[in-house]
């Protein structure tokens, strides 16, 4: 049972503090001087798209704080992931991290997000948006803000035609959802050695035994943390070089910076640690005031953690595809084909 694609209007009546189009970021752009950007919490953004049968790389919405509300002209299926928040459909509470079947004209409200920065909302189908270097991800410095305004109507091209459970009006899906735990008071972020770790006596003990607090000047370029730092010894001037996402830099002042996906690509500061790839999504959710500490792991452990994180997403993807195929819900042809190399 497949239907042709149709255009659906999604009227955004409230746009939160800052909401944008978003995806997993640009590919092959950094050698041209453009940071990859993309969802700071890649895990939640990918999961939102998977939950509605889309390719992980599809355009979704990133919602930061405040109230976000929309009404669609036709039935739509969406999913909301990220930090805990309250979602209602015509006033009734519904669950996060689940496919939601939204009837035409119903008012969907996302509010009261807590414990972190970002929510991701994905819709079954393709959201129409501008792209820069192949991606819908904002690059505000270069004049590509991608911000949503209240009153704006988004266009969704979807093959979804509504869905009701044969016995219960509200469909119940039991899916193996790898939702992160945002509840601890102090988040523990895993790190591996950086190039200057050994030149910075005491940094290992300091990072693993101290609490750091995310400062208010933090953004998608980097988190600025208050907490004890030590400076590397005996380093000459470091010639500007490329820096990976998650690099822990100690500039000249007493501040620790963890670089985000929209970092400036080169810098000349010592790198005393690098966040493990599997921890980057959590870092992408850290809001001002968030307390965190760090745990040193080996490179092999870091790769294993990331493999497990990707395995869980791939497992969810398989289950969604099987379920959607069984009940006649649309599945993106791209995602149904072959998963990205990272998921293999």
């Amino acid at each position: 049972m497949t239907f042709p694609e149709r255009a659906i209007g999604i009227k955004v009546s409230e746009a939160g503090w800052l909401s944008t189009f978003q995806d997993l970021g640009r590919e092959n752009s950094e050698f041209m001087g453009v940071p990859c950007g993309g969802a700071a919490d890649q895990h939640s953004a990918a999961a939102a798209n998977i939950l509605v049968g889309n390719s992980r790389k599809s355009t979704c919405l990133e919602i930061m704080g405040g109230r976000f509300a929309f009404t669609a002209t036709q039935d739509v299926m969406c999913a909301v992931t990220g930090v805990p928040a309250e979602i209602t459909v015509d006033g009734d509470l519904v669950a996060m991290w689940e496919p939601l079947c939204i009837p035409a004209g119903a008012r969907v409200v996302l509010a009261k997000a807590s414990g972190g920065m970002r929510n991701y909302m994905a819709f079954s189908g393709d959201l129409e948006t501008a792209r820069f270097m192949g991606s819908a991800a904002p690059e505000s410095r270069m004049g590509f803000p991608q911000q949503l305004a209240p009153g704006q109507t988004l266009t969704l091209h979807s093959r979804y035609r509504g869905f009701t459970h044969p016995f219960l009006t509200q469909p119940l899906f039991r899916l193996p959802v790898p939702a992160p735990d945002f509840s601890p008071d102090v988040w523990t972020i895993d790190v591996v050695d950086g190039p200057e770790t050994d030149r910075t006596p005491g940094i290992r003990k300091l990072l693993s035994s101290s609490h750091y607090t995310v400062g208010t000047k933090s953004n998608h370029v980097g988190l600025r943390l208050d907490g004890p730092v030590v400076h590397p010894e005996g380093l000459g001037e470091i010639v500007s070089h490329g820096v990976p996402i998650g690099a822990f830099e100690i500039p000249h002042g007493d501040e620790l910076i963890i670089l985000g996906r929209s970092r400036t690509l080169t810098a000349g500061y010592p790198i005393v640690a690098v966040a493990a790839k599997a921890s980057l999504s959590m870092l992408g959710q850290a809001s001002p005031g968030r307390k965190m500490t760090f745990r040193w792991i080996s490179n092999a452990e870091a790769v294993e953690q990331y493999r497990e994180q990707q395995r869980l997403l791939a497992h969810l993807e398989e289950r969604v595809h099987a379920l959607f195929a069984a009940v006649g819900l649309p599945v993106s042809a791209i995602s149904a084909a072959s998963p990205s190399p990272a998921a293999a």
């Binding site: 590919e27 050698f31 500007s240 070089h241 490329g242 990976p244 493999r307 990707q310 190399p341």
Partner: peptide
């Protein structure tokens, strides 16, 4: 992806 530094190259890869 690749990031060019003044006299270096950072090569970003899929660790899986």
């Amino acid at each position: 992806d690749i990031v060019a530094g003044v006299e270096s190259l950072l090569v970003e890869f899929d660790c899986l």
